[in-house]
Design a protein around this nucleic acid. Structure first.
Length: 476
DNA sequence: CGCCCCTCCTGTAGAGGAGGGGCGGTGCGCTACT
């Protein structure tokens, strides 16, 4: 009985939605794509099978920090046969880990590490019980133009004695599901798809004449409403300046972006998790693997580049099931920047010519700085897959697709019909129930949603003196 | 591409506008250098 195994290894008495179905299929040897809302115990879907299979489980993870969290969690459960194969290991540790790889129960690794010849060869000789792609939407989101090793995961799957493959994610469109299936070489996978709709997240949007007005709105809004929350900004510098402005107003806020030291990032995330920080002002670097239940607000200072990103980012709110608000701020022309940022680092036609001229030693292209490291890696990958003409076409198509995705997001912003319905429809699903205070277009009274919370805060002593003064002076 | 910031220009005072330059997201692994 699966329930008995669940109780024996993890001490739980019952499965959560989807877990049992997914595990049953995996144990029967079938590939599975599971879309489960975050925080609903996605990791158990591979952790339990690991104890019922007689071979190691390989988990492909997008972030080192995520890997570390999962390793720590398993160790807390008393599991010793667990390893994270990544650049944190010394040469000796890595050699040791590879030598005894078959003895581990859980092997975590990044796609880049898996593509190293020594690692790949070692895995190919080994029997694996299960291969897991955690946050599997990364295959589609990052594989084509950022981390091409994500498209090469199929190379580590043994042809003979192929283990079942599990793809886990919280949000994926039909086309993302298709990419996952293709690049993981899945054979008629079992789908467990939870609804992408999150009824407790209310969708607000606000329009502004000038970009600066958005900042003023944020400063005002954050001082008078309930946190904790995340503010997503378009650039690192803006994340810094807004968090500073909030700090000056007595709000416990911090900035988070990829320009910060790994140590600082970890510290800030930790402080937010334990409630010492109320607001995180971040670029899209923040979020994956952040398990905080009581996030009440997500504010977008800029326009997300596509609907999937928007859903992922607002989906970090209200995981405790309590009401939360996602506020999307828009000023005319914001789509220009969104378009620029997502296409700026794509390899261009001139890079293909340059690549062909340096065919014998393409790395030379990097020397004069005419191409970024990312763009070079992406170009190099595609040039090995396809002809010049095909690569050129592909890159153009990528650009077109990215513009199209920005436009789809813009339509949600500009339309006057239910935002939720449009979003759910975009993911190929249907909206089954109608909620009150659904979205800006259906009618939304902010105070009604977080009213109880705000009242509580108003009487709290922890209210900042600025906010108290503001209430008195402005009679709010 | 659009923004922000800085410098320069004008024409003899102080400030406003033109024009140029810099900047702008996401992560892995690895290497060279301090």
């Amino acid at each position: 009985m699966l329930e008995q195994a669940l109780h024996k290894h993890f001490g739980y008495s019952a499965f959560r939605t989807g877990q049992k179905e997914v595990i049953e299929q995996l144990l029967a040897g079938r590939d599975v794509i599971a879309l489960l809302p975050t925080g609903m115990g996605k990791s158990l879907c591979y952790q339990l099978p690991a104890y019922l299979l007689d071979a190691p489980v390989l988990i492909v993870s997008p972030l080192l920090s995520l890997m570390q969290d999962q390793v720590d969690q398993l160790r807390q459960f008393g599991e010793k046969r667990v390893v994270a194969l990544n650049s944190f290991l010394t040469v000796q540790q890595k050699r040791y880990a590879l030598h005894y790889l078959h003895e581990y129960r859980f092997i975590f690794a990044s796609p880049e590490m898996l593509m190293q010849p020594q690692v790949k060869e070692r895995l190919q000789q080994m029997k694996l019980g299960l291969i897991v792609a955690d946050e599997a939407h990364c295959i589609s989101q990052w594989g084509f133009d950022f981390r091409p090793d994500y498209l090469r995961l199929g190379e580590i799957i043994p042809m003979q004695h192929k283990p079942p493959i599990l793809a886990l994610s919280a949000t994926a469109t039909k086309s993302v599901l298709h990419d996952i299936e293709t690049y993981l070489h899945m054979r008629s996978p079992f789908y467990f798809l939870h609804s992408v709709n999150r009824p407790n997240i209310h969708l607000a949007k606000h329009f502004f004449q000038h970009k600066d007005d958005k900042i003023n709105w944020i400063l005002e809004h954050v001082q008078t409403t309930a946190g904790p929350g995340i503010i997503y900004t378009q650039s690192r510098s803006k994340a810094e300046s807004i968090s500073l402005a909030l700090l000056e107003r007595g709000i416990a806020a911090a900035a988070y972006h990829a320009g910060k030291e790994a140590e600082d990032r970890q510290f800030i995330q930790q402080q937010f998790l334990v409630g010492k920080l109320d607001w995180i002002v971040a670029t899209n670097a923040f979020g994956m693997g952040v398990h905080k239940g009581n996030i009440r607000q997500v504010i977008h200072e800029f326009m997300p580049a596509n609907i999937a990103n928007y859903m992922q980012e607002i989906g970090r709110a209200g995981r405790d099931g309590q009401p939360a608000v996602a506020s999307l701020l828009y000023a005319e022309g914001d789509e220009q920047f969104a378009q620029f940022i997502v296409t700026e680092d794509l390899p261009k036609a001139l890079h293909i010519e340059q690549y062909l001229r340096n065919r014998d030693k393409p790395m030379r292209m990097l020397e004069d700085g005419s191409i970024s490291e990312t763009a070079f890696r992406v170009l190099h990958y595609w040039m090995q897959q396809e002809s010049n003409e095909e690569v050129q076409q592909r890159l153009q198509q990528m650009e077109v697709n990215k513009y199209k995705a920005v436009h789809e997001m813009l339509q949600i912003i500009q339309s006057t019909t239910c935002m939720r319905e449009q979003i759910v429809h975009y993911f190929g699903q249907q909206l089954t129930e109608k909620i009150s205070n659904c979205c800006q277009n259906c009618g939304l009274v902010f105070e009604e949603i977080l009213a109880a919370k705000q009242h509580e805060e108003a009487t709290e002593q922890s209210l900042t003196w600025q906010a108290r003064l503001r209430r008195i002076l402005l009679a709010e």
